[in-house]
């Protein structure tokens, strides 16, 4: 799948990128983690974000989601400047992320974890009584269950998250992010440490998600998988975007090879 197929191409809003990153820099006490990063992410596409360890992939995701404010530059979401907004505001505007290290509420059930993603859909107040309250809780639980059903997790809805296999827990984290109905989903190494079978399942889920018009940014070390899943790939090295291109050609670039093999970039 090297070219964008027709079905997905229709979903890509070719006119305006959903996320626009312009000149973003991040310095940690003199160490430049991001240098003049420019990147567009379109709705309905999977953008692979690759690069050697320490290239700044997670820092870029952190800067977009407001987890750390960038030192310079701007981030726009659908034309709106979201630079420096707090993480929860960015999330409410429609960017959700997962984490490199799984962060589930371990002692809560799978359903409770996913319900958390639906937090923004609740409108009742704590003092709202009676039917509205009961109905809304039921509706949101049903929505969460429906999502779990779609992701093949329905049977585990009432199981405590802690005891489940790693692959399943990764899936739950993505389910929780999807429950928020985001416009953009930023996945930080969603298949790290997974068996190839589980990784492929997650891959399918990612493609499906992009198919619904969501912009997906995928940080991934597995070159085969990221080439297969992405519509475009951006390569980061030493905090700079050294190449953005289609998955077929990006690996042929000299600088990309140099970055990965460890030679001197020219």
């Amino acid at each position: 799948m090297t070219a964008i197929d027709e079905g997905t191409a229709a979903a890509v809003d070719a006119v305006m990128p959903l996320i626009e990153v312009r000149g973003v820099e991040k310095h940690f006490q003199g160490v430049a983690a991001l240098v003049d990063v420019n990147l567009d992410v379109f709705g309905g596409e999977v953008l692979g974000l690759v690069g050697p360890n320490g290239a700044g992939k997670t820092t870029l995701v952190n800067a977009i989601t407001g987890y750390i404010p960038p030192t310079a530059g701007t981030v726009h979401l659908a034309g709106r400047d979201i630079t420096g907004l707090s993480m929860d505001r960015v999330a409410r505007l429609g960017i959700t992320r997962t984490f490199q290290h799984l962060r589930l509420l371990e002692q809560s059930s799978v359903l409770e974890n996913v319900l958390l993603g639906r937090h923004q859909r609740f409108t009742v107040r704590p003092w709202t009584m009676g039917r509205t309250r009961v109905r809304q809780e039921r509706e949101q639980r049903e929505a969460a269950r429906a999502l779990l059903d779609e992701l093949g997790l329905a049977a585990l809805a009432d199981t405590v998250a802690a005891g489940l296999p790693y692959g399943v827990r990764r899936r739950i984290e993505i389910a929780r992010a999807l429950a928020a109905e985001p416009r953009a989903l930023l996945l930080d190494e969603p298949t790290a440490g997974m068996t190839p079978g589980d990784a492929n399942d997650i891959g399918e889920l990612i493609v499906q998600t992009a198919g619904t018009g969501v912009a997906v940014v995928l940080i991934e070390h597995n070159v085969g998988l990221v080439t297969k899943l992405s519509h475009r790939i951006a390569v980061l090295d030493w905090g700079r975007v050294i190449k953005v291109g289609d998955p077929g050609s990006v690996w042929d670039d000299e600088r990309v090879r140099a970055a990965y093999i460890g030679g001197v970039a020219t």
């Binding site: 929860d88 999330a91 992320r97 984490f99 962060r103 509420l105 009742v124 003092w127 949101q140």
Partner: peptide, 30 residues
Amino acid sequence: VLQLIRKSHYGRALRTVRLDNVVALGLGIN
């Protein structure tokens, strides 16, 4: 009052803020 909060999405949010602040923020919980 505490039971009403506990059984609503506010209770879930408070619990998440306690257990993992970053997850709460990432899901839009102030």
